[in-house]
Design a protein around this nucleic acid. Structure first.
Lengths: 223, 223
DNA sequence: TGTCGCAATAAGTATATACATATTATCGCC
DNA sequence: GGCGATAATATGTATATACTTATTGCGACA
């Protein structure tokens, strides 16, 4: 078994996992043994197995060794685009219109995540070739982006470049357009819309945002 | 500047990026210089910068050096759940009902991704505490899962454990329930539903699946 | 002036070695 | 037999060194 390079080692390990040479729930040989068997350094095996562990194919613990999970949880990484870039990547011309920007009391549904003080509430419409593309409905912690105006620059774009995205959650769901939403997005009432909620925090809440896309929008990603 | 460990090196690099010490679009010192400055080995710097590059904070090219992207594209990793586990994690009892399993011609919309030969077409309903949870509409390459019956075991579950997820795409979108879909999922016609399309390929197509979730479903993930 | 090829460069990788650290396993003691 | 201290162990990390490779940029040549 001639292995050269950590990627080859990773591929061989993955082959064994899939071939059930290393059965689910079982423990695999330790790094030193694999290094000897494959004729590579232990650091190379380490890199290969660490990579597989990050992808969810293996579970590793100090002293406990490395095992194949009974139910592998596959992990997908996908890029969170800046909306403007997203539009440009489709070959369309981005547009932006600020709808409102004021201090407001946080709705009850968000109060447990954002606290109950007043927060800055920004709504804006993103356009592609002049037609509505995405509605941005954002709550901002007052101390973030203090004094920044979002007339021409979207909060989306400002935040991506200026804030640590150290922690947070992301959620996809579908909502039906009510009358005002339909009017804003220029679609039929009742249309099915993709919504993405994103919460960002870093020792306290930073921002909560819901992006509601025009009908037909697909958010795609490589696996 | 006392740096010990690759994580400290990564943190210091990230601090400089955020503090604009290393401005967007600019090139940062090369690994050897940083290693000397921080008093660590180049391999340690490499690990740190590689990590930041994987997260989207830096762009690295051989010979070209390392630079701070003008518009950082943040990357989120999230786990793709097995439906049954997803339901169990909510404290509900999973159920499964196979609706159809037959060879069929691929619809025109999928033909460019799957080819135009006949493929195995499996539809099934996942239940949570007896109520419809998710409709699975799957096209399978005939050579995959040959002879496997999906009466009691869902294709979703079988594939996660048995197939290389080496390549593929993932897309989220929203669709409105038509009459038959509404009946299957037990919801009102016109309801907004979250749909997830997933295509898996490994030197040729393996499977294409659309999961359509019951109204109100949110797919959540850490960032 | 343009372009082709070569040299310089910075990241990518491999290796042996050494030590750190989290866990597990074991042994002795009560 | 239970429990706690201790030893054993597999992975995690750091280091110096050496070589590889993609890419850039420069210089020679047409």
């Amino acid at each position: 078994m001639a292995i050269t390079g950590w990627q080859a080692a990773r591929d061989e390990a993955l082959r064994r996992i899939r071939a059930r040479d290393w059965p689910p729930g079982g423990r695999i040989p330790d790094e030193a043994d694999l290094a000897a068997e494959w004729g590579v350094a232990r650091a190379t095996v380490n890199r290969a197995l660490r990579d597989l562990a990050e992808a969810g194919y293996l579970e590793r613990r100090r002293k406990g060794g490395t095992r194949v999970p009974l139910t592998p949880v596959r992990k997908a990484t996908f890029a969170i685009p800046i909306i403007r870039q997203d539009i440009e990547a489709r070959g369309q011309t981005p547009g932006y219109r600020l709808l409102s920007d004021r201090s407001d009391t946080v709705p009850a549904a968000l109060r447990d995540r954002l606290g109950d003080g007043p927060m800055r509430h920004v709504t804006a419409l993103h356009l592609a070739d002049g037609t509505p593309y995405c509605l941005e409905d954002r709550w901002l912690s007052p101390r973030v982006a203090e004094g920044i105006r979002f007339d021409t620059l979207s909060a989306n774009e400002w935040l991506v470049g200026n804030v640590t995205f150290s922690e947070g959650t992301l959620a996809f769901h579908a909502i039906a357009a009510d009358a005002p939403l339909a009017q804003t997005l220029g679609c039929d009432p009742g249309a099915a819309l993709l919504a993405v909620d994103r919460e960002t925090r870093d020792q306290g809440p930073i921002t909560w945002v819901r992006l509601i896309y025009a009908p037909g929008y697909r958010m795609e990603t490589g696996l």
